[in-house]
Simulated scan of single mutants.
Amino acid sequence: MKVGLYFGTFNPIHVGHLIIANHMAEYGGLDQVWLVVTPHNPLKNKSTLLNDQHRLQMVFLAVEEYPKLKPTDIEFRLPQPSYTVNTLAHLQEKFPTHEFSLIMGEDNLNSLHKWKNYEVILQNHDIYVYPRINTESIDPAIAENARIHRVNAPVIEISSTFIRNSIKEGKNVRPLLPGKVWEYVEHNLFYTR
């Protein structure tokens, strides 16, 4: 089974995440896309980051009607800080018959060379890249690697930061969130202060 891993804090998950994940599952040649909810990084400011279980619950709510999309909390149980190369090794050991690849925006591809053991990732895993607006030119050594697959996905410029700030300002951002996620956020008064 070919599984694409789509990492994120999903704080909150929004329709842009769903559009990209579903597009990769339907048009990227992947059997499933696993949305990997990344745990809180202890070195980063946590003030706007909901706890791990709330963010995981929102991902469950968002993808329940998409059979090819699966939430996972795999990184919650791994040593912190979590490095993608370690997560991939753990998953490959746990699911030896699966073929894991990464899903990332063009902006992240530009910083791939800064990732821990990025060469190991490129040797062993495909990377499916979706377009972003205003990305810098990418190192040709990485951009032209046979493991890099550009997928002509929709360009989505919605950010979780924009959604959080808008909720704090009392704006209606309901169209930007899956229905059940909106209800969960509203019920729990998330991001209001």
Rank of each mutant, 00 (worst) to 15 (best):
1 M>N: 07
2 K>Q: 00
2 K>G: 02
3 V>G: 03
6 Y>W: 01
8 G>H: 08
9 T>R: 14
12 P>C: 07
13 I>R: 08
14 H>S: 06
15 V>T: 15
15 V>S: 13
15 V>R: 15
16 G>I: 01
21 A>E: 01
21 A>V: 02
22 N>T: 15
22 N>M: 10
23 H>A: 14
23 H>G: 15
25 A>K: 01
25 A>Y: 03
33 V>P: 01
35 L>H: 03
37 V>M: 06
41 N>V: 07
45 N>H: 15
46 K>M: 10
46 K>L: 11
47 S>G: 02
47 S>I: 11
52 D>V: 11
53 Q>N: 13
54 H>Y: 09
58 M>E: 00
58 M>W: 03
60 F>K: 14
61 L>R: 02
62 A>L: 05
62 A>Q: 03
62 A>E: 00
63 V>D: 04
63 V>S: 03
65 E>G: 10
65 E>N: 14
65 E>P: 08
65 E>F: 10
66 Y>S: 02
66 Y>M: 07
67 P>R: 02
67 P>M: 07
67 P>Q: 04
72 T>I: 01
75 E>V: 08
75 E>G: 04
77 R>F: 12
78 L>C: 05
82 S>M: 10
83 Y>H: 12
84 T>R: 11
87 T>N: 00
90 H>V: 09
91 L>Y: 01
91 L>S: 02
93 E>A: 15
100 F>I: 04
102 L>Q: 05
104 M>G: 01
108 N>H: 09
110 N>M: 06
112 L>S: 07
112 L>I: 04
113 H>Y: 10
114 K>C: 14
115 W>D: 05
115 W>Y: 08
115 W>T: 08
116 K>S: 12
118 Y>S: 06
120 V>L: 03
122 L>P: 03
124 N>F: 01
131 P>T: 02
132 R>D: 08
133 I>R: 08
135 T>Q: 13
138 I>E: 00
140 P>G: 05
141 A>H: 14
143 A>G: 05
143 A>T: 09
145 N>M: 00
146 A>L: 08
148 I>S: 04
149 H>I: 11
152 N>S: 13
156 I>H: 02
156 I>P: 11
161 T>M: 12
161 T>S: 09
165 N>G: 11
166 S>E: 11
166 S>K: 11
167 I>N: 09
169 E>T: 12
176 L>M: 10
176 L>V: 05
181 V>F: 12
183 E>I: 12
184 Y>F: 13
184 Y>E: 02
184 Y>L: 12
185 V>F: 03
185 V>I: 12
188 N>D: 10
190 F>I: 07
190 F>A: 09
191 Y>M: 07
193 R>F: 04
